[in-house]
Design a protein around this nucleic acid. Structure first.
Ligand SMILES: [Zn+2]
Ligand SMILES: [Zn+2]
Length: 724
DNA sequence: AGCACGCCGACT
DNA sequence: GTCGGCGTGCTC
């Protein structure tokens, strides 16, 4: 009786063997449903061992092997195996994360193309020629013909009369066309700028095979156009392209652009926001090679791609690429590993690269492609610091910013006031007894949200009404302290009564439709002054926006995290880059009490490289990454003492295993010690080289697992942690 | 992680 | 007498 070895999503270090009557070697990589404990579970067959690791009497038979779709290929199993090893997660957990839930459950899944190419039929031609009667479908036909046919259903659907696509198909005016055009057919190619052309030429000149490129292009320099040209080349060579973006919110826009550039290519979006069926379908299309371009968030780095030819990672510095729970993988780093594994090029793009990638580029490990000039706008925005150390501010607004806003209003241009703090005020406090609004579950303050009159914790999400009087002393005069977007929005509305002030933060853009409505309002010129958080810093083009005012930036200037300056610089450069991307020149005003601070000095000169050199010098002197490698052991329990005690034991255990190459630090409570009723502590491990660190972690994890921690204590490792 | 079994306090 | 507390152990 054949035996199958299965990776299951359970937090156990081992794999599980089952019997399967009809299994053979071709079933490795197939999804399988098995009995487990008292219930059922599903996972992936990773091997067909000759004999089982446990007594054969204990083996149970599998329920069902999913054979409707091809098995996951060996390179995919290698990929999840690498992720499990490197991030010290269980193979089954990585498999569970990488596979769409529907597929892993071994449900029936169809990989049918739901976005086929459509073409005009003879009947459609006749209908157009007759043009007897106005109809939506007819209007769509002429639009589609004008836009060019054949075209993908999604492209036709996106036309003004696109809603009638179903109707046109039903009438037989449009039909699924035989795939006659080459997948790499590219339409609507703009002329490249000199920089873009040089980047594409440099890429073309390189040999085939693995190579990591850093595409360092200033904001508005047209990095996406370079991605599209490189994708075109990969498609022409018969390859599939994997394109990663940091956020779900950025996928529809990019997907539209990619689909209209490559009308004959099958573009598949893959992210956690998709319905289960759509996600499985996209995954299967990638697996069968039907998908030409897979575009998605960090999850999509696990899409199986038999014809993989190129990987693109947009905004590679973005922290969203690192999963912050469960298997803490970095999709950017996994993408680079995968490119090496598959011997294909990978392009990491950003206006503000991570210091890790920037250093690799400087060392020559990565090749660099530079876009130093903007594509449409004539120049980068002018960045100026406003010294607020001796100024009286009006709700955080300096007279200079006030005046600049006035000017934009007079000229009918848009402005953005950037403040990375949601809500009305970060805390409510009582001046007479000193009470402040704290979260019952976290070591954090409750934020005042005046828009819906609630006090809310931004960490655990709990909320309550805003009390009318101090809960501690009964004082009726309790006050919101500090400043968030809602407060600035309110003050701006008072200061500029004729202006249309629009707040753009996670509260205002709760749902996708709200977010799209906000974007449309901004694009149509329905807003004069925007008040926004980092949502505004990412990806989008606002051609009418010419002024960006940054307030409250200093608060992250002295943060304890060694990565805080890097993040601040990236964020300010990105948000500043929103100004003047169209034909109008842009200006960025940064309010600060420390205008002489080197970070702001480099920022005013828009000199990312100078900042990177300075920040890396500091990192080297302090012995921080990328000059060292880190891992963090975190523990959480209802009582802080238990978490710390566990880590102290772990440290003692680790000291015995650690050679000279690995250093362990003292366990400390985390910055946000209490989160959602759990007390958290952490222990940092550091090494100069990855190898010794990995070897140590392997032995340490095993020893810790044997320790059998108390039931209410949870612990996990984070390799290459972002927050230290 | 779930979910069992298993042995001691306050309840009908 | 039992209902239920969560301590310990197992899942192919
Ligand atoms: Zn009080
Ligand atoms: Zn909380």
């Amino acid at each position: 009786m054949p035996i199958v070895r299965v990776a299951l999503p359970v937090p156990l270090p081992q794999l599980f063997d089952y019997t399967a009557e009809d299994a053979d070697g071709s079933d490795v990589g197939r999804c399988v449903r098995v009995p487990f404990g008292r219930g059922d579970k599903s996972g992936v067959i990773v091997a067909l061992p000759g004999d089982a690791e446990v007594a054969s009497a204990r083996l149970k038979p599998v329920h069902h092997i999913q054979r409707d779709v091809p098995p996951l290929p060996a390179d995919w199993l290698e990929l999840v195996g690498f992720v499990a090893r490197y991030y010290h997660a269980r193979l089954g957990e990585v498999v569970a994360l990488a596979l769409p839930p529907g597929l892993r459950r071994a449900d029936g899944v169809s990989g049918e193309d739901v976005d086929p190419p459509l073409d005009l039929t003879a009947a459609g031609q006749a209908a157009l020629a007759e043009a007897r009667r106005e109809s939506r479908a007819l209007a769509l036909l002429s639009e589609a013909v004008a836009a060019g046919l054949p075209a993908r259903r999604s492209v036709v659907r996106a036309l003004p009369a696109g809603a009638a696509v179903g109707d046109a198909l039903k009438r037989g005016w449009l039909a699924i066309s035989a795939q006659s055009q080459p997948r790499h057919l590219a339409v609507g190619l703009p002329t490249l700028t000199e920089d873009q052309a040089a980047a594409v030429a440099a890429f073309d000149a390189a040999e085939d095979g693995f190579r990591c490129w850093l595409l360092h292009g200033v904001t508005g320099s047209g990095k996406t156009e370079v991605y599209l040209r490189l994708a075109e080349r990969a498609l022409a060579a018969g390859g599939q392209v994997l394109m990663l973006v940091p956020e779900i919110a950025l996928t529809p826009q990019l997907e539209g652009r990619v689909a209209s550039r490559f009308p004959a290519a099958n573009v598949v979006a893959l992210h956690s926001g998709l319905a289960e069926g759509a996600r499985s379908r996209g995954f299967v299309q990638a697996l069968t090679g039907q998908a030409d371009i897979v575009l998605g968030t960090r999850l999509s780095v696990f899409a199986p791609l038999p014809r993989l030819g190129l990987i693109l990672v947009d905004e590679e510095h973005d922290a969203s690429y690192k999963q912050q729970e469960g298997v803490r993988y970095s999709a950017r780093d996994v993408a680079v590993w995968r490119a090496r594994q598959r011997k294909v090029p990978v392009v990491l793009g950003s206006a503000t690269p991570s210091l890790e990638s920037w250093l690799h580029a400087r060392n020559g490990r990565y090749a660099t492609l530079n876009l130093s000039r903007r594509a449409v706008a004539s120049s980068l925005p002018k960045v100026r610091c406003i010294d607020t150390s001796r100024l009286r501010l009006d709700e955080g607004l300096s007279p200079a910013l006030h005046k600049a806003l006035e000017e934009r209003l007079a000229r009918g241009e848009q402005s953005l006031v950037f403040l990375n703090r949601r809500g009305y005020a970060p805390v409510l406090s009582c001046p007479s007894c000193g009470w402040i609004s704290t979260c019952p579950n976290c070591s954090a303050n409750l934020v005042v949200h005046l828009a819906d009159r609630r006090l809310r914790c931004h960490h655990c999400g709990c909320d309550g009404p805003v009390p009318a009087a101090c809960p501690s002393c009964g004082n009726q005069d309790i006050q919101p302290f500090g400043r968030g977007t809602q407060r600035v929005e309110a003050r701006l509305a008072e200061l500029f009564p004729a202006a249309r002030v629009l707040r753009v933060d996670r509260d205002a853009a709760r749902t996708r439709s709200q977010w799209e409505a906000l974007l449309a309002t901004i694009a149509n010129g329905g807003a004069d002054i925007l008040v926004g958080t980092q949502m505004m810093a990412k990806g989008h083009d606002f051609p009418r926006l010419t002024l960006v005012g940054v307030i409250g930036a200093d608060s992250s200037l002295h943060a304890a995290d060694f990565r805080a300056p890097e993040r601040l610089f990236q964020q300010l450069m990105q948000v500043g880059g929103r100004a003047g991307r169209g034909t109008l020149p842009g200006e960025v005003l940064i309010q600060t009490e420390y205008p002489a601070h080197p970070l702001y000095q480099h920022l005013s000169r828009q000199d990312f490289d100078a900042f990177a050199r300075m920040a890396l010098d500091e990192r080297r002197q302090a012995g921080f990454p990328p000059y060292t490698h880190q891992a963090m052991l975190r523990a959480d329990a209802p009582l802080l003492h238990d978490a710390v005690a566990f880590l102290k034991e772990a440290r003692a255990l680790g000291e015995e295993l650690a050679g000279d190459a690995v250093r362990l630090f003292d366990p400390v409570p985390m910055r946000l010690t209490r989160l959602a009723r759990r007390e958290r502590a952490q222990l940092l491990v550091e090494a100069d080289q990855r190898g010794p660190l990995q070897a140590f972690l392997l032995a340490w994890m095993e020893a810790l697992y044997r320790q059998r921690a108390p039931r209410d204590l949870r612990w996990q490792v984070d390799v290459d942690p972002l927050d230290v």
